[in-house]
Write a protein that binds this DNA or RNA. Structure first.
Lengths: 272, 272
DNA sequence: TTGCTCCTCACGTCACGTGAGGTGGC
DNA sequence: TTGCTCCTCACGTCACGTGAGGTGGC
């Protein structure tokens, strides 16, 4: 009753190519029910068809093979559905990213000039509360809102007096190697009790060249480029993290398009 | 005035990693403006920043590097925009495919049993008009509607009498190697003038086992599996193309979910 | 002099696809 | 006996990332 299906048979039934079936055997995703020891022929059975169909659909959704394995190995339906739901969430995120990239491309190609005016500013060291971590560039979008929210919660819980705008410090490696030390901070006055990821921090003094970027962070590289070009042309760059000040607090302005960000590059002291 | 930017500088400005910039140099996508012959150091200029920004956005949208090159080399804005628009169309298609795969996955995981009833049928050879081609499995969805439309147009133009439902013949390789000979046909009576891709064709006689599949073609592999399993279990399979009959003509039922398709597998003559 | 930045190989990743060259069953 | 189906290497694809090991400029 358990009819032996050859790769060809199984391929026709599942619409997976023979090459793909052999590959799935090799990586242990879908092993033939039997293998002829003499001829090495692969034989599948009818009750493997269901697995093959699930595999095909998950791969169609670009779920990594390792994750597909996990789905097949899931002990119960709840586990399985959770794994699938997580992947669908990833797809959603991807989709949002694509949409943002399309908008960003459109903005870049629009003939409207995006002239940034470069200004200079001297800032003194300032006490603050901060959260720091080494972050992947791609994870920044996820890490950032959580950190901001935690800082805000701490300000409220400890009744701290805010003395300046929300800001961030980003090591050069974050851009050069897509992974680097990042700090988000809120300048505050008074004593701070460390809690969770939040601790007292001193925002270092600096001499800065800066531009203001309006709109989504997806386009922020244009501002970085203009500012960097200015710094390079005037040969005034110095080492140190790049700084951003968020003039529209995301708590009050959740729409990314309404953001207003100062990008600040560390430079030599400009002769006043 | 043309400040020399090192990879590191350029990386910080564009948010492309140093590794990526080196890679783009190697594949000729973005060549440094100058290279120190002694140290092999790469130097970029400020006016290369614009190109880098376009590249970054297009790669963010997964446009292949070769296509990005074409965009940068485009002679005028119209050419450039056409290339970009084509890619955005591809993204749309991708998105539709993903949505379909999600639906299909949901349908598969739904506990509702999809019991297909297998029936047998003997069909005689029948005259028809047809379009044939060797098609990629992935291109079927694009090839098929055009071919159908052309067949319908021919029926109307030549006032042919339709004698049976729209159908298709698909070589096994189409599933096993994702590329194979495909035919779509409409059975007709009377003389046929070949025109365009359309020619007279005789749908061969056959002994068939078949199931009826309701709904989108994205789920059709389930029907293929059940039918294939039946054929294998009864050991009645013979060589020959797989046949489909489209009982709801897509011209009248454009919604993919409303489709009704007979899947027919060639088998031995069953003793009546 | 010490880090820092830059360099070049060479190999890895991921999910298969593409031949080449050869064997078993009807 | 002839095709057909199946097999196993070995290498290619795509867009980078990951070290290893080494050099030049402040």
């Amino acid at each position: 009753m358990t009819a032996q299906l050859t790769v060809g048979d199984f391929s026709r039934m599942t619409h997976l190519t023979v090459k793909t079936l052999r590959h799935y055997h090799e990586v242990g995703l879908l092993e033939p029910a039997a293998i002829d020891p003499a001829t090495k022929y692969r034989y599948y059975t009818i009750d493997q068809l269901g697995q093959a169909q699930v595999i095909r659909r998950l791969r169609e959704l670009d779920m990594p093979v390792a994750d597909v394995k996990a789905v097949l190995a899931a002990h119960d339906v709840a586990d399985r559905n959770a794994l699938i739901a997580r992947h669908l969430d990833r797809l959603e995120t991807e989709l949002a990213r694509t949409r943002a990239a399309v908008d960003s491309l459109r903005a870049l190609l629009e003939p409207a000039a995006h002239g940034y005016e470069v200004t200079h500013r001297t800032v003194a060291a300032a006490p603050a509360i901060a959260i720091e971590a080494v972050v992947e560039h791609g994870d920044l979008g996820a890490w950032w809102p959580g950190a901001i929210a935690e800082l805000h919660a701490t300000v409220n819980a400890q009744h701290l007096r805010v003395t300046g705008p929300l800001g961030g410090l980003y090591a050069a490696e974050l851009f050069q190697e897509a992974r680097g030390h990042s700090v988000v901070f809120i300048p505050v006055a008074g004593a701070v009790k460390p809690i969770g990821r939040v601790h007292a921090f001193t925002v270092p003094a600096a001499e800065l060249a800066l531009v203001t970027h309006a709109g989504s962070h997806d386009d922020v590289d244009v501002a970085y480029s203009e500012l960097g070009a200015y710094v390079a042309a005037h040969e005034i760059g110095v080492a140190g993290p790049i700084r951003e000040y968020y003039l529209r607090d995301p708590q009050q302005y959740p729409d990314p398009a309404s953001r207003l960000t100062e990008i600040a590059w560390p430079v030599f002291r400009a002769s006043a």
